[in-house]
Design a protein around this nucleic acid. Structure first.
Length: 427
RNA sequence: GCGGAGAUCGCAUAGCCUGGUAUUGCGGUGGACUUGAAAUCCACUGUCCCCCGGACACGGGAGUUCGAAUCUCUCUCUCCGCGCCA
């Protein structure tokens, strides 16, 4: 959510940002209008309260001096003020609610370096990493590999849970655990604190960290309790300090979270989504940073550097992409994606997303730090380190051998008790 | 799940019984004193508004009342005890 200061004093900045994104100004103008109306209603209500407070003091004084006649007189005079205030209060509250509902749907201001483009076709390459693997045979896609090696059971998962759920089995399951462990240790080595979050959150906290439309398309709601399964550990980790004022000495707070991620994936279909590429539940190791606004852009580069070094250590071929205006979403001010080369699919596909959300989440979460001039919103950043299901797909496709076995990335071999290749499951 | 006690500004606290302008300490910022520092002293230190000034804020919501931190109801959370449990 953007701060009201921007709407009141620098609305042209928001308008210019909307122009870059190619969206109309209607919502901005509505927020500004509703804000004015709310302030008028507020003024009127406060005037009423002021009257009431003065009267209440008069009654108190009269009672103290034993002047019952005087106190009765004032009480009779002010009897209806309460009702008047209540009506004005309702009006002000509904205006404020309307203002902020619209304000929440207005996206963050983009960084100047974000390329302008209509959709993902407008994304630009930032850098290219690793060596493109060459094969002496026709490489298989991951769906064929998991099937021939019996590493994933989608049918039986569908039987007991639904489509897009999966059992992960044998050596591939073990590699998954090794990836988690490797990524967590890697980030601990870079000053991050390992955090395991709750896997469910309430609505209030959730609204602070996500786009409202996610409640329809992404999150699983839990009944009968008013809770949501987390779609990523970014959400609990970022909202952890909701409603708090942080001491500047605590910043930056750098966390590495690991959790299962639950996503409804409404509307996601297609051949390229077969296998375990797009699923309702996967594990993700996530970097989250809460920091002073002055160094958030440095941290954004650091997060990307961590990803690059981590994926280089896995010895995979991938590119880093600048996400363009049309592909950005609501919350981030700037975003890099890592896209891994999938030889079976013969294309680069998204494996990591690295965002600086500036003060957008912090405003909504009322997450501030102390300054000598008062409290100011912190900046929040998040980046995938490894989403294991997609990392497994990239490893399988890039490291496959002609017989269908898969070479374990060297850095993970010690975490696999020295095992260098993934073997098939018997059943 | 049952019984009890609680939730007050960044932290800690008083006020609640008996309704009438939110107490005090710590921490923080600025200033005085000082060669400098410490100590001491002074001011400021939650949110909102049209920032002179006013309004709001005592876990959330509702009620009673001219008026609620204070009384009533309700929800949430925390702590203690009991029960159940990996």
């Amino acid at each position: 959510m953007l701060s009201m200061d921007l709407f009141r004093n620098e609305a042209d900045k928001i308008r210019a940002d909307h122009d870059k994104r190619g969206i109309p100004h209607d919502s901005i103008n509505q927020v500004i209008r509703l804000d004015e109306e709310w302030r008028n209603a507020l003024k009127e209500m406060e005037e009423g309260r002021r009257e009431r407070n003065l009267a209440a003091r008069g009654i108190a004084d009269a009672k103290k001096s034993g002047n019952k006649e005087e106190s009765d007189k004032i009480m009779a005079q002010v009897k209806d003020i309460g009702d008047r205030i209540a009506a004005l209060d309702d009006k002000a509250n509904s205006l404020l609610g309307e203002r902020d509902t619209i304000r929440m749907s207005i996206p963050n201001l983009l960084h100047d370096a974000v390329p302008v483009g209509e959709d993902e076709g407008g994304n630009t390459q930032h850098s290219l990493h690793g060596v493109k693997p060459e094969f002496t045979f026709e490489p298989r896609n991951h769906n064929d590999l998991i099937e021939m090696n019996k590493w994933v059971d989608l049918e039986r998962a569908a039987k007991i849970a639904g489509s897009r759920f999966f059992f992960l089995k044998g050596d591939l399951a073990r590699l998954e655990l090794a990836l988690q462990s490797y990524a967590v240790d890697f980030l601990i080595g870079r000053g991050f604190t390992f955090v395991q979050p709750p896997l469910m959150m309430n609505r209030t906290a959730y609204e602070g960290v996500t786009d409202l439309s996610d409640f329809e398309n992404v999150m699983y709601g839990i009944t009968p309790d008013p809770l949501y399964m987390i779609a990523t550990s970014e959400h609990p980790l970022t909202s952890m300090y909701m409603d708090e004022v942080l001491e500047p000495s605590m910043l930056p707070i750098k966390m590495v979270g690991v959790s299962p991620c639950f996503r409804r994936e409404v509307g996601a279909h297609g051949l390229s989504d077969r296998g375990i590429w797009r699923v309702h539940q996967f594990t993700k190791i996530e970097q989250v940073v809460i920091t002073h606004p002055d160094d958030s852009w440095d941290h954004h580069e650091d997060l990307l550097k961590n990803c690059v070094d981590l994926w280089d250590a896995l010895n995979l071929h991938y590119e880093v992409v600048n996400i363009c205006t049309g592909d950005m979403g609501t919350v981030a001010a700037r975003k890099y994606d890592l896209e891994a080369w999938l030889p079976g699919a013969k294309s680069f596909k998204e494996i990591v997303s690295c965002s600086n959300c500036t003060d957008y989440q912090a405003n909504r979460l009322k997450m501030r730090y102390r300054t000598s001039e008062g409290n100011a919103a912190v900046h929040t950043l998040n980046s995938t380190a490894v989403a294991t299901s997609r990392a497994l797909v990239a490893i399988m496709e890039q490291n496959q051998l002609e017989d269908g076995r898969v070479k374990v990335p060297e850095c993970l071999v010690p975490l696999m008790s020295g095992k260098t290749h993934l073997e098939s499951c018997k059943w």
